[in-house]
Amino acid sequence: PKDEAKKKVKEAIKRGDEETAKRIAKKYNLDWDDAKREADEER
Rank of each mutant, 00 (worst) to 15 (best):
K22W: 06
A12P: 00
E4S: 10
E38Y: 06
E4W: 15
L30M: 05
D3P: 05
K36C: 07
R37W: 08
D40L: 13
A39F: 12
E41H: 09
D31R: 02
A12C: 08
R37S: 07
E4L: 13
R23E: 14
G16V: 01
R23L: 14
R15D: 05
I24E: 02
K36D: 03
I24C: 07
A39G: 05
R15L: 09
V9W: 05
D3H: 12
R23M: 13
K8G: 04
I13T: 01
A12N: 04
E38T: 05
V9Q: 00
A21G: 05
K8H: 09
W32I: 07
D34M: 12
A25V: 04
K10S: 06
N29I: 03
K27I: 13
R15I: 06
P1Y: 14
W32N: 01
P1M: 14
R43G: 13
L30Q: 01
E42K: 06
G16C: 07
K7T: 10
I13M: 06
A25N: 01
I13F: 05
K36M: 11
K27M: 14
E42I: 07
D40F: 12
Y28K: 01
K7H: 10
D17W: 07
P1W: 14
A5P: 05
E18F: 15
A39P: 04
V9I: 14
K14M: 15
A12V: 02
D3S: 12
N29Q: 09
E41D: 11
K22H: 06
A21T: 00
K2M: 14
D40H: 09
R15W: 06
A39D: 05
T20N: 07
E19G: 06
D31N: 13
V9P: 01
E41V: 07
K27T: 08
K2A: 12
D3W: 14
Y28W: 13
R43N: 13
D31S: 10
D33F: 09
D17G: 01
A12D: 00
D33K: 06
P1N: 15
E42M: 06
P1G: 15
E11L: 06
K8R: 14
K7M: 12
I24F: 03
P1E: 15
N29S: 09
T20P: 01
E42G: 08
A21H: 00
E18G: 03
V9E: 00
K2P: 10
I24G: 00
E19D: 11
R43W: 12
R43D: 13
K26W: 08
G16K: 03
K7P: 02
K10G: 04
A39I: 11
